[in-house]
């Protein structure tokens, strides 16, 4: 190896890129085909397995993780691991709220009343923050708000 810092890892042959590209293509077709079948939970599992395979191919070959310093692989896996931790621990809550008392596991009104947000609607708030001058406009929006309150109230 020369003193230059870049070519310390060998240049991959063209065929690697072409083959990986083709594999990704095939997997994409495969995942679409599988999704058209009715397999219950296996639909989700298969789709995720295929996605993970594709992602691994991209990371290992296109992103050179297979050939580079293993530290980068650790960094990348750490990202995935902590994301997993985040999702798993959050769902440890959201999926088990009804364990002791069933009523705690779900909202009181399952169907959201979309146009009945308490307080002032988002867009108007933004406008109000940028320029607090258009009082007339906000007043009417508040009035509209109260009308929709009456309409959608329980």
């Amino acid at each position: 190896m020369s003193s230059n810092g870049q070519s310390h890892h060998h240049i991959l042959p063209l065929s690697v890129y072409i083959n990986v590209g083709l594999a990704l293509l095939v997997l994409t077709v495969l995942t679409v085909v599988v999704a058209q079948m009715e397999l219950g939970v296996f639909n989700t599992i298969l789709a995720m397995v295929i996605a993970i395979t594709k992602a691994s191919l991209v990371a290992l070959f296109f992103m050179h993780l297979k050939y580079d310093n293993k530290l980068y692989l650790i960094v990348f896996l750490a990202a995935i691991a902590f994301l997993g931790l985040f999702i798993i621990l959050s769902m440890a809550d959201t999926e088990t709220r009804g364990d002791i008392y069933e009523f705690r596991g779900r909202p009181i009104n399952e169907d959201a009343v979309i146009y009945n947000r308490p307080g002032v609607a988002g867009i108007d708030t933004l406008a109000g923050e940028v320029a607090d001058t258009v009082t007339a406009a906000t007043d009417t929006s508040a009035a509209n708000q109260s009308e929709s309150d009456t309409a959608g109230g329980q």
Binding site: L89, S90, D93, T94, P107, E110, D111, A112, V113, I114, N116, R117, P118, A121, G122, I123, T125, L126
Partner: peptide, 24 residues
Amino acid sequence: MERVLGVGIFDPAMGGDPVLYQHF
């Protein structure tokens, strides 16, 4: 986004969850 577009992910009135916000 919740304030600007009312996406509702944290809004209990829209099927979202304020406790999820606390997790985040």
